[in-house]
Simulated assay, not measured.
Amino acid sequence: MPALTSYTHALTALQAAKLRTLLEERGFEFQTKPYCLYAAARSKVNVCVYEKGPKIVVQGKETEDFITHLLEPEVLGEAKLGYEEVHNPEMFQPHIGVDESGKGDFFGPLVIAGVYVDGNVARRLRDIGAVDSKRISSDERIFKIAGDIRAVPGLAWEVISIHPARYNELYEKFGNLNRLLAWGHARIIENLLERVPGCPRAISDQFANPAVLQRALQTRGREIELVQRTKAESDPAVAAASILAREAFVGWLKSQSQKFSLELPKGVSPVVKQAAASLAQQHGNDLLPALCKMHFRTSSEVLSRSVSDHSNKPAG
């Protein structure tokens, strides 16, 4: 089994303070990092305690040793590493996990993925490092783990990529993102249930209105237990789905960036707006709906800027 090199866990404020004292006593070198209460490193382990939560992120070759000999016995007060099946047995029972990527990105598709696991598959996913894709910063690592996920014996998976042109049509039809997301989640669950009809349960992130997803399910989907919860990515099936969705999203961005010889950035930052403006200037405004989610405020800002630029051009 590969050694654990990354680990995340929620802390209380008291636990965060106690850990800092323990790290100081053990000679860790402290650093200042954005959004962190503190960060420290020693030998082959790095520790960041983030303000939000707070939560701890441990990385490095000595992650497992740090958790087993310091974090669990002296801070958390319980042994969890290696005891996931005792603490969370439902993670290792047959179920489907669903997640999406691209929801908050101006460029690119909305990708929804689903993964079916049983006990053996869930253990294998844990071994290959299938964690929430938001915790994996490298696109190359996303592609590598996605390939490993698809190679796991007994795992079933589905991916739906709703490319921008189709996305914009569906958004008009459904009227809001929640309904569109629910439709995509329901399609994934229904497709997987055709392949694993005996699956008793499906897990996804909590919808603002849980009934929206329930209503979107068809005959097969209405027969299973639907679990919606916050931080669903802690589940191995949902984590694997998040990686497959991210792989498809990043792959689309890379291919379109090459096609137009211009990087299409993630998110909705000023850099994104500049890239969209450059595309509109070079290829015309009609290109944007094929590459962008047009209900984002960014689209109206880019279009109004384009109109302004044209009106300010001197007459021939």
Rank of each mutant, 00 (worst) to 15 (best):
E158K: 10
H163W: 13
H163K: 14
A165N: 10
R166T: 15
R166D: 15
Y167F: 07
L170Y: 13
E172P: 03
K173G: 00
K173W: 04
K173R: 14
F174S: 03
F174D: 01
L177F: 08
R179F: 02
L180F: 07
H185Q: 03
I188Y: 10
N191F: 10
V196L: 01
I203Q: 10
S204H: 00
D205C: 11
A208D: 13
N209V: 08
P210V: 01
P210D: 10
V212A: 08
Q214I: 07
Q214Y: 05
R215T: 03
Q218L: 13
Q218T: 10
R222W: 11
E223K: 04
I224G: 00
I224A: 01
E225H: 12
E225A: 14
V227K: 07
V227E: 03
A232P: 15
A237D: 00
V238T: 02
A239D: 05
A241C: 01
I243H: 02
L244D: 11
A245D: 07
A245W: 04
A248I: 06
G251N: 09
G251A: 09
W252N: 06
L253M: 09
K254G: 04
S255E: 15
S255K: 14
S257G: 09
Q258L: 12
K259A: 07
L262H: 05
L262E: 11
L262A: 08
P265R: 00
K266M: 07
K266E: 09
K266F: 03
K266H: 03
G267A: 03
S269W: 01
S269L: 03
S269K: 09
P270C: 04
V271F: 05
K273E: 15
Q274Y: 10
Q274R: 15
A277L: 13
S278L: 07
L279W: 04
A280W: 04
A280N: 05
A280L: 01
N285I: 15
D286M: 09
L287E: 10
